[in-house]
């Protein structure tokens, strides 16, 4: 099999106050795969993402992007990551186009034309008349679309999504999921944390359930088969898996 795009190797994080947020978590995400991390609040999903983005350093283990360790060579690792947060926050005084141009160029991609920016914004579902409006009046859904447009334009092999559909209406959530599927089909590796079991079931190549920092279950879509993911989740979260 090809080299994994995301690679967590015995990832462990103990905070200064002694809380063990991650306990020897290992997983891989390959190109063309979506890895959905499920878990309750405080399970370790965001800590995992923060280590991949080098916002935190692991206490033990390594997080790698295409073989590059995120805490020993963070800039090289970040050059290969695009990130969409739960609540995409952009510069309110800038227009959607200006935000897009700034963050795309910040990601090292400064060859795009204005037409390409417009096309990508239209692709993520942001209507043309909103492209040159300031972000001040944008809804959360519109900002999420801008965030995804930035990720697309950055054209990174690895995409990290932190609760991307949280708070979106069903229509916006559906459109977002469709876009993720399309990106997966283009060969992107996607690491996503979510509370949305049904959407995870729908699009994930692999589902991992985290509980109190431990990866208590990890199954591919094929392994899941027709199993009831909600039942599995509740069993593992309750700590009495079969």
């Amino acid at each position: 099999m090809s080299q994994p795009t995301f690679e967590a190797v015995n990832l462990t994080k103990r905070y200064e106050d002694g809380v063990l947020a991650l306990d020897h978590v290992s997983f891989e995400v390959h190109p063309g795969q979506i890895y959905a991390m499920l878990g309750a609040n405080g399970a370790g999903k965001t800590t995992t993402i923060n280590i991949f983005l080098n916002f935190l350093e692991p206490t033990e283990g390594e997080a790698r992007i295409n073989g590059v360790c995120t805490h020993t060579d963070p800039l090289a690792a970040k050059a290969q990551i695009a990130y969409v947060s739960e609540n995409v926050m952009l510069y309110p005084a800038f227009t959607a186009m200006q935000n897009l141009e700034y963050f795309t160029r910040l990601g090292g991609r400064d060859h795009h034309t204005k037409d390409e920016y417009h096309r990508v914004l239209e692709r993520v579902g942001l209507q043309r008349e909103a492209h040159d409006k300031r972000l001040r009046g944008f809804s959360k859904g519109m900002r999420q679309k801008c965030g995804l447009a930035i990720a697309i334009l950055k054209d990174a092999p690895a995409i990290v999504l932190d609760e991307p559909t949280s708070g979106l209406d069903p229509q916006a959530g559906y459109e977002f999921t469709q876009l993720l599927t399309a990106l997966r089909d283009e060969g992107k590796a996607i690491l996503m944390s979510t509370h949305d079991i049904f959407r995870a079931r729908e699009i994930a190549s692999t589902v991992g359930i985290l509980n109190r920092g431990r990866l208590v279950m990890q199954r591919s879509a094929a392994e899941l088969g027709g199993a009831d993911l909600e039942q599995l989740y509740l069993e593992h979260i309750a700590g009495h898996a079969a």
């Binding site: 983005l53 080098n54 916002f55 963070p74 800039l75 090289a76 970040k78 050059a79 990551i81 695009a82 990130y83 947060s85 609540n87 995409v88 926050m89 952009l90 510069y91 309110p92 963050f103 910040l106 990601g107 090292g108 965030g147 930035i150 950055k154 990290v160």
Partner: peptide, 14 residues
């Protein structure tokens, strides 16, 4: 506070 710092440093910015 605005949350833009997180997005900025998800990019390779020294």
């Amino acid at each position: 506070e605005r949350g833009t710092l997180r997005l900025t440093f998800a990019s390779p910015v020294p």
